[in-house]
Simulated scan of single mutants.
Amino acid sequence: MTRTVYLFGSAAPPVLEVDGAVGELHRRGWDVCLGLTPTAADWLDDRIGTLEALTGHPVRSAYKRPGAPDVWPRADVILFAPVTFHSLNAWALGLTDRFVVGVVAEAIGKDIPTVAMPCVNAAYARHHRLDRSVAELRDMGVTVLYGEGGFVPNQPGTRHPYPWHLCYDAVDNAHPERASRT
């Protein structure tokens, strides 16, 4: 049985490592469909063809036209990583002008297990909206890997390695009865 994960990324530095994330998800038995915010798609523009070959699916960053067929299989799980301050807050507020934010907002109502791991610096983390958005998404059933046991903000201008492994484990555990043995 094929398991499909939608891997969504917004414009934070770890999105530049998305090919490694696709590879690890494949290794764990997932079919991967890649969606990006418009800015993330721009950052990866010269690699879109390679990423499409790697996933076997079109990379999407915009809504399809009404009536157009869907080019992806149905998601079993959605992973939004990295998710920026902007995308996380837009999602919690239901502002769905961007394709990936619209899909994850709708996933809540469709009961599609969704995992998110922010990538924000400590200056953004001081903004009250971030904690509110994280709490609201968690209340809606989203697994948000933030704080202890998840992404911990760094000081502006510094970076630590993005803890992708936490994302992979959370995706595998989203449906324990179907999780691959890793």
Rank of each mutant, 00 (worst) to 15 (best):
V77K: 01
C33V: 14
G29I: 01
A90H: 07
D19T: 09
Y63M: 10
L88F: 03
L36Y: 07
V59T: 13
V83A: 15
V77Y: 02
T37C: 01
P69S: 13
R28V: 02
K64F: 08
R65V: 08
A40N: 07
V18P: 00
D19G: 15
V83F: 06
D45P: 01
P14D: 09
Y63D: 13
W30S: 00
R65A: 15
N89E: 03
L88N: 00
W91I: 01
G94F: 08
S87R: 05
G67Q: 08
H57G: 06
D46T: 14
P38Q: 10
T39E: 09
Y63S: 08
A41E: 12
E52L: 12
S87T: 14
P66V: 12
G56T: 10
P14V: 00
I78N: 04
F85Y: 15
P66L: 13
P69V: 12
A41D: 10
A81K: 06
V18C: 07
A62C: 06
T55E: 04
P66M: 11
A21P: 00
P73S: 13
P69H: 12
L44C: 11
A75Y: 03
V18E: 02
G29A: 04
G23Y: 04
W91Q: 01
P13C: 06
D46I: 08
R65G: 13
L93K: 09
L34S: 08
P82A: 05
G35I: 04
P73R: 14
E17Q: 14
R74E: 15
V15R: 01
R28Y: 08
A62D: 12
D70A: 14
R27L: 11
P82T: 05
P66H: 10
C33E: 04
S61Q: 09
D45W: 11
A92K: 07
T84V: 04
T50Y: 09
E17F: 05
V18Y: 01
G29R: 03
D46K: 11
A81H: 11
P69F: 09
H86K: 15
L79M: 10
L93A: 15
G35S: 09
L54N: 08
L16F: 07
C33S: 10
D42F: 13
R65D: 13
L25P: 00
A75I: 07
Y63L: 11
A41L: 12
H57P: 07
G94Q: 05
V83N: 03
